[in-house]
Nucleic acid binder design. Sequence first.
RNA 1: GCGCCUCUAGCUCAAUUGGCAGAGCAACGGACUCUUAAUCCGCAGGUUCUGGGUUCAAGUCCCAGGGGGCGCACCA
Length: 443
Amino acid sequence: MLSRPQGRLAFAELRDWTGSVQLFAVASRTERFEELTRLSLGDWIGCTGEVVRTKRGELSVQVESWTLLAPTRHGFGDKWRGVHDVELRYRQREVDLWANEGVRDTFLMRSRVVAALRRRLDARGFVEVETPVLQPLAGGANARPFVTHFNALHSDFYLRVAPELYLKRLVVGGFERVYELGRDFRNEGLSPRHNPEFTMLEAYQAYADYEDMAGLVEELVAGTALELFGSTEVVFQGRRVDLAPPWRRATLEQVVEEVTGERCELGRGRDALAAVAGRLGVEVPPGSGAGRILYEIYERTTEHELLGPVLVTDYPVDVSPLVRAHRSKPGVVERMTPIVAGREIAEIYSELCDPDVQRSRLVAQAAAREAGDDEAMVVDEDFLRSLEHGMPPTGGIGLGVDRLVMLFADLPAIREVLLFPALRQDRRDGAGGGGEGADGTDA
RNA sequence: GCGCCUCUAGCUCAAUUGGCAGAGCAACGGACUCUUAAUCCGCAGGUUCUGGGUUCAAGUCCCAGGGGGCGCACCA
């Protein structure tokens, strides 16, 4: 609450998360009037009284009785300018939420986005499941995991980098439409687009392929936008995008050529693509094949230039170890990536169901790992055995919820859509040190 | 991990070429019967992120460290 005492009268603004209302107090009719006028910005009170209209016409509660629910000892920032120091905002998010209305709106919107995604999947017959976060092997994505120790089992476990392999095992078990909406953990650097824990939606549908799943993603994204904003148009960082389906399809080769002017057909071979990469100033990991080089060129030069929405298709097999080979085009897989305003918002696959092909892909990953790629996958025998039981043709999607919220909220930093983003421990006041510890001399 | 930028009162921000650390809001004391960021008077508020150094003199310059932002790298 914020008070504006005026002698024998007082006005105040009382706010909760539904909005605010003006309080109006008259000394002769309000209990403990003097005390009421001395409340601080940020004190929490409850009150009762008649609803009246002031002379200026504002609907107000004329306070009769009131209770101090909780005094505030710290204050909540400048009442007009709020709180803008980003460090304070992230470390003390409660202050940020209290002081800055736009921040409250962002997180209420995030909640509605998550609810809308669930509702839409449920309506299509998907079943929400929960699979292990603590995993003996971290699979399903190329990423370094967090390691933790499982005391009772005397072994190290990993926080999942993706739920993918477990969800596919559920498809094998007859759960034809499953999804999980939860936290993944990747032991990587922080950036405006990356937080080590982030929220992923993965969904799998048996008897479906990547075209079916592309339709699902279009519906989830455009439908949610329409539901929340009454429009499929969004503006992200000054770029206007219409999310109404169907989204354009274009191959990786096509979009790279559109943006760079370079012809990049995989069929031209490794050396030709390496030459293109050189011309464009794109560095390529040593030993890369044609597919890897094309992918590197795309990521460095093209992806951020695509306004979209566009579904980029025909990814090289060497950068997609869990995806089924394309039904007619050699060297590529049935994978699509929707790009909106220069950013990838999901992954769409026809899943690889053949246990033998999957095994050889994972063995190749493990070999890369041995060679020093510590983000390559490992051979997960439990997963492979499940495929040997027979997995029907299945389509899958992975949708980054944080990034979808960023798109909808027009916010460029993931921290702005995470209530408590990862921050380094604040040790500023401990600086100087030397006082405690190893010096055995004391008074 | 590397590079650039940044850190001043509870909050938002000033402080000339190195020359007495300031304002608004909040808080605190007072005035005020229709305010809307109320207004007016008064009062108080500081390890200028930390530790060193240069200098007659450091918020300002130099070195080291810490936090944050952005970029690179890694990735979604």
